[in-house]
Design a protein around this nucleic acid. Structure first.
Lengths: 200, 200, 200, 200
DNA sequence: AATGAATGAGAGTTCATTCAT
DNA sequence: AATGAATGAACTCTCATTCAT
C-alpha cells in the first residue's frame, strides 16, 4: 500500500486515464462521451478505469484537480512590492494564458459541467475561485482606496471578466480568437484607468 | 392552420410545456431531467410534449428563444444622447438585473448546455451576444477615445464581466448574492474611472 | 341506417381511405406506414379513419377484400367445354396478369402480412385459394387421367407455381421482369407437355 | 481478437441468441416479437443481445444467413451424369424437404420480412435464388431442348413452384400437410412429362 | 491488476387509438 | 360526420457499472 513503486505505477495509470478522458471530453463533451470511448482512447479495458476511478463524474473531478494543481503551480504568490499593473498581469492573466489553445475545449467542458454539478462547483469555488478572490481582495484593499465592500465587488468583477472572456472566446468570437494576445495589455489598462483613462 | 384561436391554444400549450421544462431543468439540470419529469410537472402525457417539440434539446432551444425574446424586449436601444454612465447602466445591467432570482438557475442550465451544444451556442452568439457587441462597439467608439481595435476588446471585456459575474453568482458566492444590487454602481464606476479613479 | 345515399357516401369514403392505404402500404410497407401517413394521403384527419375501419390491420383486410372482389369479378368460371390449354390460360393467368404493374407492390405487402397474420391468411385460404383449388381439381380430374390424390397435389403445384412466380418477380428478378408477358405460353406448355414435350 | 477460444465462445453465444430469436420469431412473428422476448427465451439480459447483434433486423439477417449456410451445405452440386429426374429430385427437393416441420414457421417469417425488407430480399436473391437459377439453367439447357429464353423462364417457373408450395403449406392447406412426402414424385413427374404424360 | 462480457434500469421517442368538440 | 390534440403503453437501444476469470 505504501510501496513507492506501486504508488508510482498507480499514479501513472491514473494520469494515462485522465489524459484520455480529457482528450475525449474535450472533443465530444462530457455526456456524449462513453466510458468505452475513453478506454479505447487509452488502449485499456472498460473495467480497468473503475479500478482507478469510482465513476464517470469522478473522472471529471480528477481532470479538474489536475487543472487546479497546474494553475496553482503556475500562479506564484505575488511579491509584496508589486505595483498594481504587475499584480494584475501576473495574478489574473498568467493562468488565463496558460489555458490558451488546447485547454480551452476542455475548460469549456469542465465549466459546463461545473455549472450543473454541485460537487464540482463547490470544489471550484473553494479551491480556485475563493482563494484567488481572497488574495486579490487583500492586495487591492491596500493599493486601491476603496471601502472593503467596494473592493470585494471589484475583485469579483475583475475575476468575472476573466472567466467571461474565456467563455466568449470558446463561443468562437473571432475578435477574441484573433487578438487574444493583446488582451492583457488592454484589459489591465481598462481596469487601472477605466474608459476615460489615457491609453498607455 | 391560420385559425387564430388554434394558434393561441397552441402557443399556450407550448408555453405551458416550456414553463414546466424550465422549472424542472432549473431544478435538476438538463441531462438528469427526463421527458417524463417535465410531463408530470405539466400534468400532461409524455407523448403530448412531442406534439409541440421535436426533441428534448428542442425544449431547451424553446426556452432559450423565450429568454432571448424577453431580454430583447427589455433591452431598449439606448437614446443617442445618453452619457456613458447611463448607457452602461441601461445597456448592460438592465438585462442582467432581469435575470435576478428565479431565472438564475435556469440561466445556469442554459449556459451549461450552450457551452457544449453547437446549435445553442451559435444561436446565443448570433442572436444575443453579437448584436449586443455591435451596439456597444458603436457607442464606445464614439464616447471613449480608443482605437477601433482596442474598443472591440474593451467591449468584450465588459460584456464578459457581466457574464462572469452572473456565473460567479450562480456558484454561490455569498458576497455577490448579498450585494448584487450594488453591483451596477460599483461596476459602472470601475469601468469608467478604473481602479485609480475617484469613486463617485 | 338503410338510407341509400348515406350508404353510398360511406362506401365512397371507405374506398377513398382504402385507396390511400393501398398507395402508402405499397410504397412503404404495412408496418412502417402510420395511420397519419394514410390520413395525410387521403387529406382527412387521423380520427376519421376510425369511423370507417376498426384498426390498422382492418385496413389491410379491407384492401384484401377489394382485391378478392376484383379477382373474382375477372376470373369468370370456365366454360365446361374448354380444353386444357384454354382453361389454364384463363383460370390461372388472368388474375396473374391483372396484378401486373401497379398492383405488384401492394400484393407483396399483402402476402407478407398474410404469412404472419392468421386472420388474413385464413381469409385468403378460404376465399381465394381454396375455391380456386376446388374448381381446378374438378376440371383437372376430368381432363387429366390421374388419381384424385395426384390431382390434388398437381393442382397445388400449379397454383403454387403462379404464386411463386409472382414473388420471384417482386424480388426483382430481371428475367421475369422483362419477359413476364411470355410466361403464360411457356408455362402453359410446360404444364401440359412437361420438359420433354415438344415446344409449341 | 484472433483467440480461437474467444471466437468459439462468441460463436456459441451468437448461436444461442439466434436459436432463441428463431424460436420466438417462428412463434410470434417478427414485428410482434420484442427484444425482451428473445432475451427471456435465451435466459440472458436484453443488453447482451446488442453485444452480438447490432439491431433487431440484424437478428433476422443472422437467422437468414444460418438458413442459407445449411441449405448450401445440403445442396450438393449435382453430378454431371445425372439424368433429369435425379437432378430435379436432388436439386429442388432436397432443400425443400430439409425445411420440413420445425423450420416452416420460421421460413414463413423470413419470407414475410423478405418481401418487405430490401436488404434481406437482395441477400436472398443474390445468395440463394440466383445461384440456384444459374445452376438449373445450365443443366436444363443441356437436357431439355428449348431455347435459352424458354429455359430461363422454365427454371423460374419450377423454382417458383417450390417456393409457392412451401407457402401454400404454411397457409395450412391440409392436402399439402398430409401428403407432403409424396410431392417429390408427383411434381417431378409433372415437370418431366406434363399433365398428358403417362404417370410413372 | 486487467479484462470485457454481462447486466438491466432507464432513456427518448413513436404511434394506434380515443373522444370532447 | 369530422376533427386532431391527447393519451400512455410499449418499443428499441444505450451505457455506466459489476465481477468472474
Amino acid at each position: 500500500m505504501t510501496d513507492p513503486i506501486q504508488q508510482q505505477l498507480i499514479a501513472a495509470r491514473k494520469n494515462q486515464i485522465l489524459d484520455s478522458a480529457a482528450a475525449v471530453f474535450a472533443e465530444k463533451g462530457f455526456h456524449p462521451t462513453t466510458i468505452r470511448d475513453i478506454a479505447k482512447h487509452a488502449g485499456i479495458a472498460d473495467g480497468t478505469i473503475y479500478n482507478y476511478f469510482a465513476s464517470k463524474p469522478a473522472l471529471l473531478l480528477g481532470i479538474f484537480e489536475r487543472m487546479r494543481d497546474r494553475i496553482m503551480a503556475e500562479a506564484a504568490p505575488p511579491p509584496a512590492d508589486f505595483d498594481l499593473r504587475a499584480f494584475i498581469r501576473l495574478f489574473l492573466f498568467h493562468p488565463l494564458m496558460a489555458l490558451k489553445q488546447d485547454n480551452f475545449a476542455l475548460f469549456r467542458v469542465v465549466v459546463s459541467e461545473m455549472l450543473v454539478n454541485d460537487e464540482l462547483r463547490a470544489l471550484y469555488y473553494e479551491q480556485i475561485l475563493q482563494p484567488a478572490l481572497v488574495i486579490g481582495e487583500a492586495f487591492f484593499q491596500e493599493h486601491a482606496g476603496r471601502t472593503p465592500e467596494q473592493t470585494r465587488l471589484i475583485i469579483r468583477a475583475i475575476s468575472g471578466m476573466i472567466l467571461g472572456l474565456i467563455l466568449e472566446h470558446t463561443m468562437g468570437d473571432p475578435v477574441l480568437t484573433d487578438q487574444w494576445d493583446q488582451l492583457p495589455d488592454v484589459v489591465t489598462d481598462l481596469i487601472i484607468n477605466g474608459l476615460r483613462g489615457e491609453a498607455s
